[in-house]
Design a binder for these strands. Sequence first.
DNA 1: GATGATTTGTACGTATGTATA
DNA 2: ATATACATACGTACAAATCAT
Lengths: 227, 227
Amino acid sequence: MKPPTRAEQIRTTLSDDIVHGRLRPGDALDEAGLAQRFAVSRTPIREAIRQLEANGFAEARPRRGAVVAAFTPQRIDEMFAVMAEVEALAARWAARAMTAPERHALEAMHRASNRHVVDGDLPAYQDHNFRFHEAIYRGAHNGYLAELALHVRQRVAPFRRAQFEAPSRLTRSYAEHDRIVEAILRADADRAAGEMQSHMSIVRGAVDLIPAMPEAAPARGQARAAR
Amino acid sequence: MKPPTRAEQIRTTLSDDIVHGRLRPGDALDEAGLAQRFAVSRTPIREAIRQLEANGFAEARPRRGAVVAAFTPQRIDEMFAVMAEVEALAARWAARAMTAPERHALEAMHRASNRHVVDGDLPAYQDHNFRFHEAIYRGAHNGYLAELALHVRQRVAPFRRAQFEAPSRLTRSYAEHDRIVEAILRADADRAAGEMQSHMSIVRGAVDLIPAMPEAAPARGQARAAR
DNA sequence: GATGATTTGTACGTATGTATA
DNA sequence: ATATACATACGTACAAATCAT
């Protein structure tokens, strides 16, 4: 598609490493080391790091190097609260704007995912889950919202790794998806938004289990934003 | 502050040039030319451009250079719709979460701005307007939402330059702010969100007047692909 | 369609600021 | 506190690809 440049490829790889947990919040991004790992000079590495920084995946201090972005528990709460609102908005608009074929496709995709639930196939369900939410973004028929939702989702990703750890969550997620799909099919925008909201709240609840901050910290921020 | 590095300074300057209209959507970002203008080598320029790209201010194709991001009217509509929702969300949360001192400060700031309205002092009012909305972001007590709202606002900025061109808009803006402030002071979250929504809708209406796309064919490059 | 000019992408070297002894 | 080590920021050189002729 678009990125035949080394810097872009490296950015994508690093970004992926962060989202999938191979690089963890707080890990250092050493230019020389990464240059060796990717067998390139430091130049493309630098550009990749700068892009990660601009996307919020890394934090850099001039002359002091960069680390994978790490946040306080309070900040993570904030990000989840915002993500829930953005997802709810997408669901609301999707309930109104989706075409008939889109609705059918969403329903079909959702129903097919039941197979992964009964199989207990976690990776497959995670993959489906991503595409499910993405389909709703697109269904909102607002490209900028889709872009923003994806951005937020990516930002939050490093902190929701443990999401589906328990098999029960998988069943539960499917049930919640079911309610969302039903609301969207009925073009019930308010209910779609509401169901998505609680879906995301539950996702957030599943994340406390992560050893979020290796770094340190001013501990326990609970100041949960209203909903 | 934080950015003593050349690349950061340049990024800020360019970003400012874009937001304030000195660089317009579609303008080319030539590395050599900018390097000369800022009296530095191409390296910091490249880094600055990459950051602009990641922030959505520039669009670059590998080996083909970068231009200031240009969007279709539809895309601009989409961005405004999303901005309205984000601003409404901030107002909703601010109505719930603001402390008493914050509420008083908001009210005071708003009332003081009336002076700029009667004076017809456009620059002063624009400055106030920015701080007014920023105060609401902060009042939502969610740092990530504030960051996101600012991000969206900045993205939309190049397309809302003509916002207050007519003096009547200034009066109207003040009246709308008034309704927003009143709702927030009463902690009426739904009404705060609703008032903010219509406020932003009207802002959007004022923007059609902008010669948004200097789409008139530049000698270089060919027609831009639509999404 | 081939060739030359221009511009971007990558490699590498140097200087400066930060951290450590 | 001074000095040393080291990683980063910037500059320069070359290679490769695109645009123009």
